[in-house]
Structures are given as structure tokens and as C-alpha cells.
Design a binder for these strands. Sequence first.
DNA 1: ATCAAATTATCGTTTTTTGATAATTTATTG
DNA 2: CAATAAATTATCAAAAAACGATAATTTGAT
Lengths: 243, 243
Amino acid sequence: MSGLSRFLSVLRCFTEAKANWTVPELAEAIGVPASTVYRTVRELVAQGFLEPSTEAHYRLGSAFIEFDRMIRLTDPLVKVGSPLLRDLVAEVRHPCVAVLARLYGDRVICAADERYDGAELPTSYERGRPMPLTRGATSKTILSQLPGRRLKKLLADADADAPAKLSGELAAIRKRGHCITRGEVDKGLVGIAVPVSNSELAISASLSLVVSDATLDERLERRLVLLLVSAADLLSQALRRLA
Amino acid sequence: MSGLSRFLSVLRCFTEAKANWTVPELAEAIGVPASTVYRTVRELVAQGFLEPSTEAHYRLGSAFIEFDRMIRLTDPLVKVGSPLLRDLVAEVRHPCVAVLARLYGDRVICAADERYDGAELPTSYERGRPMPLTRGATSKTILSQLPGRRLKKLLADADADAPAKLSGELAAIRKRGHCITRGEVDKGLVGIAVPVSNSELAISASLSLVVSDATLDERLERRLVLLLVSAADLLSQALRRLA
DNA sequence: ATCAAATTATCGTTTTTTGATAATTTATTG
DNA sequence: CAATAAATTATCAAAAAACGATAATTTGAT
């Protein structure tokens, strides 16, 4: 373990399940002597990535909040997309969650989301939560835009269950311009996604709406696809203006 | 330069003013050979802290979004405070911004904020933005809770303009239980802050409201102080329950 | 003030980083 | 599609930093 990964092995211990760690616990968990972890933690605290918590415990530090703000202020997709998501859910006038997602290593991450006022959809998609690469409209729509070589390498690492079936689906998305999946991510929910890309900014993302399966009839589905296509168009235009 | 600071010297280059960097630019800016920066950037990209942007440029990566979510999910102050801020601004029924802030190195950072629906106050306080340690009600209220030795060291490093005056003000905050400052941070705005602390969780923070000076009469001011005190009380109770 | 636990300091050894340069890959353009 | 330039990675010996066992110190709670 060396370089950055030394620090990440500590930071990745801090999860929802266990958000408070002592140094001996960390040392045990990552299999490294405590004296080394004391040094590592000291550096992380000095830079604000960890902070002292209750008696000899540590928690994630505010530096992440600071850098997250910098992303909100500067990332083209987030900056341009966030206000657009607000407009989108307002136009939908139906319980839904709108999501802007992008590739994140071998997964997909939601970079911005917006909930229709008061909607109580139990969706897994949530800003900052990594999601599987090959399931759901949001992810598949991102994959459908990747250049062949990149896609092949990604899928090889992720060893998808049915690569042939998947590549057929991706071709269909490229052809139709959108993707609809039912219950692939969350039971009882439907995802409708359209591609968002800008090669100049090296962005390949997707814009999606999650709605309850039970309340979605054909008419509404058509309307949502249209709204998404038009929102994605606006988004692409705005991105082009930034580039 | 070594350890974590090697990576931070790169990450800190990414600002609102310049959010896109090439490796040679970074090398020039931090005074290190390009071959070294190529290696550093490669590690940061591998961990998701940077990502490739338009032609040979890099921008901040989604890992910050992921860790920020982890903070929202696990940090006691943020987790408990965020819904409380929403309730607070709703009860205020007056254009305002509510802010939860804490110490962040030699500055203060806003860890959660909430804007009264539609309020257009041009306030500097914003989630994730570091603010000066010795100016404004939000910061002074945090300082007023620190143990003497800690405070002295902080102020020594920050070399405050008028330490005597400041320590008088801090004593007054401890006595009154709140702090009101006018135009110390933003011209034409007033900050009203109350302390939030929980020694078990090693939290010393402040809860504040920012309102326009012009619209604030004595009656409203009294009401806001009362609302803040009661919200801080709820917050402290909730924190105690967590500990 | 005392005690236990947490944290930092020490130091020879081992490992990693460094930076100049060469080799390779990638993107662009005629 | 070849040619070119730019970006990126690989190489390698010297220099620097990290390691980890242990000792010393600090901190926090009686």
C-alpha cells in the first residue's frame, strides 16, 4: 500500500454502517500497525479529511464538504444540470425523482438529483451514491454512449451476466434515443433515461426520471420521454455554450 | 512536499476561478516537474478525485460527491441539523438564510444551510465555503465556546486585529447566550447566532440566521433570537440522543 | 495528583518517490 | 491512412520518505 491508496484505505472505512473509528480499530480493519495508522490519520486530520469525534474516535471531515461545493460551483454537468432538474420535475407534475448520473470508475454515480415536491419514492438513486453499471435505464443509457473499446474494457472488468443481451439493449438505446426499465434497480419503480453527452467536455451522462410503476400509464410515459428529450436537449445546448 | 500534502497541492489548484488544468499548468503552478505531477494526477484520477475533462485537462472528480454524501448520512451535526434548518426557516416566515457552521482548521465552514423559500439575500454563507474565524456572529459564537487554551492558539495563528476587544465580545456571548452582528460579513446583512455544542460528540458549532438589516426591527429580532434558542435546544437534545 | 489510554517521537531499515529522459500512446491533420 | 505533435507512461539510479517496533509524552477522567 503506497501513495494515495494508503490514505484511501483509511477513508473507505468510514461508512454509513460504521462512521466512527478509533485508530486501533482502523489498524485492525486494514491490517496495518497502529503506529502507521496514527501517522496516516494525523495527516488526514491536518488536511480536514478526518476530524476528531467523541473520545479517541474520528469521523469524516469537512474538507469533503468544501470540495463538494467546488464541484457544485465548477462542474459543468452539475452546474448546468441542477437548475434544469428543478424545472424538469416542476413540469412533470407527477411524483418522480429526476437524476443526472455519470460514469464513476466501474460504476455510475448520481451527480445531481431533484425530487418532485413531497414525492416519497423509495428510490436508490441519490446524489453521491454509486450504482451498478449494468442495471437500470440510467446506467444503460450512459453505457450506450461509450466508444466500443472503452465499453468492452469496462464490461470485462465488471463481468456482466449477459454481455450479448446487454449490447443488444445498448444498440436499441442508441437507435431509439431513450431507455425504459422496470424494477431493475428498485422493485415497483420505473426508470426512463435519455443520453447527455458533450465530447468537448468529455461528458457522457444520462438524465432520468424515476416514477412508480403503478402510476405510469402509456400516455404519461410518452409525455415523460418527451420532457426528458427536450430537457436533455437544453442541457446539451448549455454544455456546448460552456465548452 | 510529501505524503498527503503532495496530493492536496494539486487538488487545491482547482478553484472557481480556474477549474480546469493541464498537467504542465499544474506543474508550473506548484513548482514541481511535470513527470512527477503526471504520476500524482494519475493516482488522483484512479481514486476518483480528479477526472479527465476536455483535451488533456482535468477537473475535480466525483469521489468528493460520494464522500460528501457519506457526511450527509453520518455526520451528527449535518444529519440532525438539516431537517431542523428546514423547520426553522419555515417558522421564521421572513426572508432569511439559516446556517449551521463549525470550526474548520483556522476558519469556519458552513456544514448545512437552508434558504427561506425564494429569499434572495446575497449572503456569503453557503454550504462548504470556508469563512473567516473572527468576523460575524456565526464565527464568534463558535469561538465563544472553545476552551481557553484552544482559543488562544487559534487566535495566535490567525493574529486577530483586536484580541482584547474580541475576547470581551466572546465573554458577552457566553453570558447572553446569543450574538448579533451587523454588516461584519456582508454589507447590509445581520447575523444572529446561538451556540450548539455537544462535548460527547466533540461538536462545537453555531446555528444562525442571516437577514437583511433593513427589514429587521426590534420585535422581529427578539422573535428570531427566541426561535434560534429553541431550535438550538432541539438540536442539542437530538445530538445528545445520538451520543 | 494519579492512572490508563491515546498519541507522538525515535531511529535504523526498507520502501517509495523523485526527476531527467526515453519510449509509447493518443489525437489531429493533411 | 500516414505523419506529426502532444500527452502520457516507463525507466532507473539517487534521494527522500514511510515503516514499525518501542519508548516517551500527552491527554482525559477520576
